[in-house]
Deep mutational scan, measured.
Amino acid sequence: HHGSGALAALHADGPHAGLPVTRSDARVLIFNDWEERKRSEPWLRLDMSDKAIFRRYPHLR
């Protein structure tokens, strides 16, 4: 199991509170979210491209 239990660094406060600090933090969040959702949506594709990251977390651009 590759990303399970990996912890992402999140901004503690300010405008980005609760959001990932780096792209690799964002990838951890996206992976964990996908892993949760694919139980009920097995067709869901995992997209951890930069484009997917920016779409979801525009502050990382």
Rank of each mutant, 00 (worst) to 15 (best):
A26G: 02
A8L: 07
H11P: 03
L46T: 00
E41V: 05
L29P: 00
R27Y: 05
T22N: 07
A6D: 09
A26L: 01
H2M: 11
R37Q: 14
H11Q: 03
A17I: 11
S4L: 12
H2Y: 12
E35R: 13
A6P: 11
R55V: 12
P15E: 06
A26W: 14
P58S: 02
I53R: 01
P15V: 07
F31T: 07
D13W: 10
H16I: 10
A8T: 05
S49N: 02
A8K: 15
A17F: 08
L46E: 01
H11Y: 11
R56T: 15
A9Y: 09
H2Q: 10
P58A: 02
H11D: 03
A52G: 14
S49F: 02
W34L: 01
T22C: 07
G14R: 03
W34V: 01
E36F: 09
H1L: 10
D25K: 15
L44Y: 09
A52I: 06
H2E: 09
S4D: 13
M48G: 02
R27M: 10
L10M: 06
A9F: 14
H1K: 12
G18I: 03
D50S: 06
D13H: 08
R37I: 13
L29V: 09
H1S: 10
F31W: 08
L60W: 00
K38H: 12
D25M: 04
R37T: 04
N32P: 00
R55K: 13
G18L: 06
V21C: 14
D33C: 06
H11I: 07
M48Y: 06
P42I: 04
D50G: 02
L29S: 02
S40A: 10
L60M: 02
A8R: 04
Y57C: 01
A17Y: 08
I30V: 05
L29F: 03
M48K: 01
S40P: 02
P15Q: 06
F54L: 11
V21L: 14
P58H: 02
S24T: 09
A6H: 12
D50E: 08
A6L: 15
H16A: 04
D25Q: 05
S4Y: 12
S49K: 01
R39K: 13
R61I: 10
H59N: 02
E35D: 15
K38T: 08
A12W: 07
P20C: 04
H16S: 06
W34D: 14
A17Q: 10
W43H: 12
E36Y: 13
S24V: 08
S40V: 10
A26I: 01
F31D: 15
A52P: 02
P20Y: 00
L46M: 06
S40N: 15
L19F: 04
P58V: 03
R45F: 06
R61Y: 09
L46G: 01
G5V: 13
Y57F: 14
P58R: 01
G5S: 08
D13T: 11
P42G: 05
E41R: 05
A26P: 00
M48I: 13
R56M: 09
G3P: 11
S4W: 09
H11L: 06
I53E: 01
E35V: 15
P42R: 09
G18H: 05
E35Q: 14
S49P: 00
G5C: 14
G14I: 05
R39L: 14
R55H: 12
R39D: 11
W34N: 00
W34S: 01
P15Y: 05
V28K: 12
R56V: 08
A12M: 11
A9E: 10
L7K: 13
K51E: 15
A8F: 05
G5H: 12
V21T: 05
F54G: 06
G5K: 13
S40Y: 14
A52Q: 06
V28L: 13
R23I: 15
R37A: 06
P42T: 04
D13V: 08
K51L: 09
A8N: 04
D13R: 06
S24Y: 12
